[in-house]
Design a protein around this nucleic acid. Sequence first.
DNA 1: CTAGTTCGATAGTGGCACTATCGAACAGCT
DNA 2: AGCTGTTCGATAGTGCCACTATCGAACTAG
Lengths: 230, 230
Amino acid sequence: MKVSDLSRLTGTPVGTIKYYLREGLLPPGRALGATLTMYGDEHIQRLRLIRALTARGGLSIAATRDVLAAIDQPLDPLATLGVVHYALPTPVDAAETDAVGEQAPQVDQLLGAMGWDISEESPHRRALAASLMDLSRLGMEYSTEDLLPYAELAAAAARLDLDRLEDIEDRLRLAEHAAIVVLLLEPVLAILRRLAQEDESRHRTAWARTTDGAGPRSTTRPVDHPRESH
Amino acid sequence: MKVSDLSRLTGTPVGTIKYYLREGLLPPGRALGATLTMYGDEHIQRLRLIRALTARGGLSIAATRDVLAAIDQPLDPLATLGVVHYALPTPVDAAETDAVGEQAPQVDQLLGAMGWDISEESPHRRALAASLMDLSRLGMEYSTEDLLPYAELAAAAARLDLDRLEDIEDRLRLAEHAAIVVLLLEPVLAILRRLAQEDESRHRTAWARTTDGAGPRSTTRPVDHPRESH
DNA sequence: CTAGTTCGATAGTGGCACTATCGAACAGCT
DNA sequence: AGCTGTTCGATAGTGCCACTATCGAACTAG
């Protein structure tokens, strides 16, 4: 398969393929001469993955390269998940380290309450602290109690994610699938939440109208905590 | 308060403030002369919101302007949520309309199964179809049954979101808070899911090691469906 | 009166993700 | 062998975006 074929089959312009090759996102093909290089099905697959991670997942070329590098490491599959996590961009600029420190206790409190065992150096700690700081500065304080139900939902989602990964028989591409589950399911969940918000708000508005009340009251109930104790 | 003060209090460079004024993200101050324009606390608040939406939420300046415009509409609070939703960027390029159509039946099936009442023109329909298409092309088919538990989690999250909004007493800024809940809680949920994945994968790896099994089995249980029938 | 600030307008910068062009080296066909 | 078209790697250019810098004029505070 030549570049032109690769281009045609994936809908990616030749120039872009060359660019990805230059940037190390695509492994080079087999050069059979100065004007003939052959590519295989793995290039098609990789190209699709690149486009999904960048166009849909919103990753930069650099971040995509990191993720792909993590995928290509022949690591313990679940360890790969960690590497992929670390390769992800978590927008926290250096200037707000102080702000992050301010929220660190609350992050610790939440992690403790959930019984989550999270590495001290996880970038997600900082990212979470930064987001909570934003919310707080905007006048929307979220306490640990406020966050706990969300954390329970996240835990349930994570269990679904890992269930799916364990069912994969193709061990060779497990790392790839892990990255896909982590990254491409994220927009799916975000969209589902927005859809649910639309429906839920419709329901509540209707309720408020028909009962002429001051608005519906909370319909939330405690979420059960499915992992069997700690 | 002068620009210099506004700049100092928010940590935003004067040049950037001027830029936001030009772009219509910040309302102009009260001009008291050719070299003196006064700004108020609402400008501080608005500036913080802009920075949160762009730097944290990842919105473009244009998308931020749309969201802010939605916020400034004196609409029914829950309608505002809809307007905010429509102002959000959903990365689906025109070229993949066919692919979207291919997945449309599955989207309908999911919405039907959840009993969600979603407008036919919602951009989220297309966005979801596009994401499912990506997954399918990458060899990770998600059936309606696979997605349902995620949708249940999303519904639970949406209920939490709206509970919070209903508890807000400051009706004037409700639209603003709605945007914050929709947009800035999104990265929080994403981070929580990643943290949960890290913890869950640690647990499963440990389990697999101690039991010397072929890997842990599913720990998922059915999620209950909290809204009282349809 | 003077030094410094702010105004609006315009132009420039840096980063990113491509995209275009070029000459040389072939490949495939006749 | 000759011709046409493709591909090669390298380099340079493009378009967009989010700022950032500069400028002269107008003003304000001390």
